[in-house]
């Protein structure tokens, strides 16, 4: 029986996975870089996936087990994680295992990532009261989650990840790998998602434009998608700006990402001008499609430039550029 709450581990705003990871690693003293840098190094900002009806779920519709393992691996952090459906008969066994792993992480002074219909940080636990304390960025005080409620979400998933050690990494190797993975993300569909319902990377822009054109989209979803990816594109711009100091050849890619981020800013402004439950009016749809096609072109240009920079490694990886 024990209890512990980690001091000064919190989130300041509504958070995604990278915010949560960033807060935990920073609190542990393993990471001093900005969110944008972490987002780039972990390749998270390069992921672009949309449901073809532009539902808000798009922004978390990816292979958590694969991508979050990699996010940590890319930056030299080792981790353990597990995930499943809460409707499976074995869920109670995994719930017990999760609580035990999470508590051990807290005891080591490291926050844990869990899915509570969004990614949140577990900052403490109390065995007497049988509950976890978590921070989700919406409130300055910690929320409480009874052990027995852990994993019982509105969405069918449970998930947790605990970080274990930090290994020495060569910074240049991290940056180079992230650029290779950026190409992979741009060109490759996530096998976990049915292609009839989801589009990834380059194809994501066409899917968004199609949805706009046919008016078959979710009004709230499209605002959330644009807001989320606008922040990602801004991260990419900041990240590649730093990388340009090492590889000046990235100059035109950085310029393209700058323009890309600005296009998304314009789209964010457009979403503010409509009531979120309403559809865009016809002239706005035309503008939106124009912006999307423009954005696709910018990102294509940037990726072409990156490919020139890392062409030798691309050739070494034959037909599977993502495979390290």
């Amino acid at each position: 029986m024990g209890a512990k709450i980690l001091d000064s581990l919190c989130l300041t705003d509504q958070a995604d996975y990278i915010d949560v990871m960033h807060a935990i690693l920073k609190h542990r003293g393993w990471m001093t870089c900005s969110r944008a840098m972490l987002s780039g190094m972990t390749v998270s900002s390069f992921r672009f996936t949309v449901h073809r009806r532009l539902t808000a779920e798009s922004t978390t519709a990816y292979n958590w087990m694969a991508e979050h393992f990699l996010a940590a691996d890319f930056v030299g952090i080792t981790a353990s994680q597990a995930a499943g459906f809460q409707f499976e008969p074995t869920f109670p066994l995994y719930q017990k295992q999760a609580i035990s792993d999470i508590k051990r992480s807290i005891d080591r002074g490291i926050g844990a990532v869990i899915w509570k219909d969004q990614f949140v940080i577990v900052v403490g636990y109390d065995d007497e009261r049988k509950l976890l304390y978590y921070a989700d960025g919406t409130s300055p005080t910690n929320g409480t989650l009874p052990y027995i409620e852990w994993g019982r979400n509105r969405s069918p998933y449970w998930y947790y990840q605990v970080f274990e050690e930090r290994l020495a990494m060569d910074e240049l190797a991290i940056y180079r790998e992230s650029l290779l993975q950026a190409i992979y993300k741009w060109e490759t569909h996530d096998l976990m998602l049915p292609e009839s319902d989801y589009a990834c990377g380059r194809a994501g822009y066409d899917a968004m434009a199609d949805a706009m054109h046919s008016s078959e989209y979710d009004g709230n979803g499209v605002c959330e998608i644009i807001r989320y990816y606008a922040s990602a594109k801004k991260d990419i711009y900041e990240y590649t700006t730093v990388l340009q100091k090492i590889w000046p050849e990235l100059k035109s890619a950085v310029e393209a990402y700058d323009e890309l981020a600005q296009i998304f800013e314009t789209m964010v402004e457009m979403t503010l001008s409509i009531d979120a439950t309403q559809k865009f009016a016809a002239p706005q749809v035309r503008t939106m499609i124009h912006l999307l096609m423009n954005a696709k072109q910018k990102e294509e240009t940037a990726i072409e430039q990156i490919k020139i920079l890392v062409r030798e490694t691309i050739n070494n990886r034959f037909n599977d550029i993502g495979l390290r």
Partner: peptide
């Protein structure tokens, strides 16, 4: 068949 009609957040491919 919930297991096969719910899109998971894992599987299909392993980390690269």
């Amino acid at each position: 068949d919930l297991k096969r009609t719910t899109i998971p957040r894992w599987g299909s491919h392993t980390p690269r």
